[in-house]
């Protein structure tokens, strides 16, 4: 090969083609356009974060503590304006989601991946769950409304107190259930067959294999999924509006861990943000309040999301 290249003409031709390649303006343009797509996206993200941060300084910079302890008010200049009720609602919604959706979702995933026979009924359930994950969140709100508020089934409204943090939490638990099932299922499928065989081989029962090998190995994946779904639940507003979260004035101001207030009227961080944003047209001071509430919500949501991302990346790297 080398000797043939000594031919001057072919050498020149190769040089020319390399030269052409260097000057491939169309290719460069294409790459630049693609880079721009990413840059615009990231710039929008940056502008969003900066706008929110700047807007929020009026509240966070001057009266953070009062803001966290205050309540829903009709005027933005009210010095008792604040997030306490919103944080109460969001905290309890998160707890209810964790208590209801995680065990049921992980249990369903264990059944579908480890126990269920591969038949039509099983694949029907799996398709069904995947479709549930795509149902708009506002529709879940309708279900919560029909089920938990209007007492169409079993008079559940008497148990939930109608429009309450409990109703909101149950509704969002139903909303994230398919996400928990899907992400946990993926984690179970990643467990190597050799581990299962090793455990079966020394006389472990199915459940013992699952409890001692499958669940521990899949734990990081499951945790990632639950963190992501928790972040999703805490950020959701539409279903809560449907189940009657309060955006105007709320009577009492329960302590953060006051279980008794679970069946009372409620609000949550995303609802507070919505309400203040909508009111900002009438009363400009609400812009700062909404931005400050967003900062508080983002701190929680992004913390859970980044924990999930880090956890996943770490284990992907570790396990190759």
């Amino acid at each position: 090969m080398i000797s043939r290249l000594s031919d001057d003409r072919s050498r020149a031709a190769i040089a020319a083609s390399i030269e052409r390649r260097r000057g491939d303006t169309r290719g460069l343009l294409f790459k630049t356009v693609l880079q721009m797509c990413l840059l615009i996206t990231l710039a929008l993200l940056a502008v969003l974060l900066v706008t929110v941060a700047l807007d929020s300084t009026d509240q966070i910079g001057t009266r953070l503590w009062d803001f966290l302890q205050g309540t829903l008010r009709s005027r933005s200049t009210d010095e008792r304006l604040g997030l306490h009720q919103g944080m109460y609602g969001s905290l309890w919604i998160a707890i209810i989601v964790a208590v209801l959706a995680f065990p049921v979702g992980i249990g369903a995933a264990v059944y579908l991946e480890e126990y269920a026979p591969r038949n039509r009924f099983t694949s029907f359930i799996e398709v069904n769950i995947r479709n549930l994950a795509g149902v708009p969140s506002v529709v879940y709100g309708l279900v919560g409304l029909a089920l938990l508020l209007n007492g169409q089934i079993f008079g559940l409204d008497r148990f939930t107190g109608g429009s309450s943090a409990l109703s909101g939490g149950i509704t969002l638990a139903i909303l994230v259930l398919p996400i928990v099932v899907i992400t946990s299922g993926e984690a179970f499928r990643a467990v190597p067959i050799e581990l299962r065989e090793g455990a079966y081989g020394v006389g472990a029962t199915k459940w013992e294999v699952i409890r001692t090998q499958v669940l521990p190995y899949a734990a990081p994946g499951i945790l990632t999924g639950t963190l992501l779904s928790m972040a999703r639940a805490v950020g959701e507003a539409a279903p809560l509006i449907l189940v009657g979260a309060i955006s105007g004035r709320l009577g009492d101001n329960p302590g953060l861990f006051d279980i008794g207030a679970l069946t009372d009227q409620f609000t949550a961080l995303p609802i507070v943000i919505t309400s203040w944003t909508v009111q900002s047209g009438r009363d400009g001071g609400f812009t700062a309040a909404a931005a400050a509430a967003i900062v508080v919500l983002l701190v929680f949501v992004l913390m859970m999301n980044s924990a999930a991302i880090l956890l996943r990346n770490r284990f992907e790297k570790k396990r190759g």
Binding site: D55, V234, G235, I273, T274, S280, L298
Partner: peptide
């Protein structure tokens, strides 16, 4: 992972 209410705020105010 950014909640849609945050985008709602951003859309209206920016």
């Amino acid at each position: 992972g950014i909640p849609s209410v945050v985008l709602g705020f951003f859309a209206l105010t920016w």
